[in-house]
């Protein structure tokens, strides 16, 4: 199974490197949104400083929709879902492989965004263990749930508009918990940051388990 997961994840990452959609389009879009928020909320007024964590995760969520659409859009093209069904790859292997590739892409995006908020907003980061753990747990939750809904909408002609409608409301708990954990980690708020990380971990665990179970019927119906 590990070999199959690595095969699928490697293929997805290679597709990303070849197409350069993430580097050429999604990352610039993410930085542009950060910059526009900086223009709109003027760092001198102190508003940006208070909402940095929330903005960071909002941008991550919007960009994750783009990554997920791309990840499952390529599988829907030219009969590839059928070809995957004809291989010996198990559905959980395909699911976990796609989640793994999305996690790598999203974590890379988050690093770029962190540099972006440091430059554009003058944000300083502390509490690295909490921030890193929260980022990994939130990213697993986003990739895990996003892959379920990505597969669900993959062959629909309306998938580009349907996916954000399905996914963003579902990710509200991730947005809230990741934002709170980051506020604590960055020293903006006192509190139990690790309890928010635990919530993120539970969310990720639930969706990763559901995805591994549901991916086969989702591929059959896709």
């Amino acid at each position: 199974m590990i070999r199959d997961v690595a095969l699928v994840a490697g293929k997805d990452l290679r597709l990303e490197m070849r197409s350069r959609v993430g580097i050429g389009q999604v990352v610039p879009f993410a930085l542009l949104v950060l910059l526009l928020f900086a223009f709109a909320l003027d760092p001198e007024r102190g508003v940006l400083d208070r909402v940095t964590s929330g903005l960071f995760w909002m941008v991550v969520l919007f960009c994750s929709v783009l990554f997920i659409q791309r990840s499952f859009g390529v599988e829907a093209e030219d009969g590839i879902i059928d070809a995957l069904r004809l291989t010996g790859l198990s559905a959980p292997s395909i699911y976990i492989g796609k989640v793994a590739a999305l996690v790598v892409e999203l974590l890379a995006l988050e690093v770029v965004l962190a540099v972006g908020v440091a430059i554009f907003y003058g944000t300083t980061f502390g509490g690295f263990p909490l921030l890193l753990t929260a980022a990994v747990a939130a990213t697993l939750g986003i990739a895990g749930s996003g892959s379920v809904y990505g597969a669900l909408s993959a062959r629909l002609r309306t998938r580009d508009t349907l996916l954000p409608l399905l996914l963003l409301p579902l990710l509200a708990p991730v947005l809230i918990a990741a934002t709170r954990a980051f506020e604590v980690g960055m020293g903006r708020e006192a509190g139990q940051g690790w309890s928010w990380v635990a919530l993120l971990g539970i969310f990720a665990l639930i969706y990763l388990s559901l995805g591994a179970l549901l991916f086969r019927p989702l591929m059959e119906d896709a």
Binding site: K11, R14, L15, R18, S19, V74, E77, D78, G79, I80, D82, A83, R85, L86, T87, G88
Partner: peptide, 20 residues
């Protein structure tokens, strides 16, 4: 699903990733 791995299908689609 048990038969799928043992057959080869060539349809109207190419079953190929365009960017690879």
């Amino acid at each position: 699903h048990a038969v799928r791995r043992r057959v080869g299908l060539l349809g109207h689609a190419t079953y190929l990733y365009d960017d690879l």
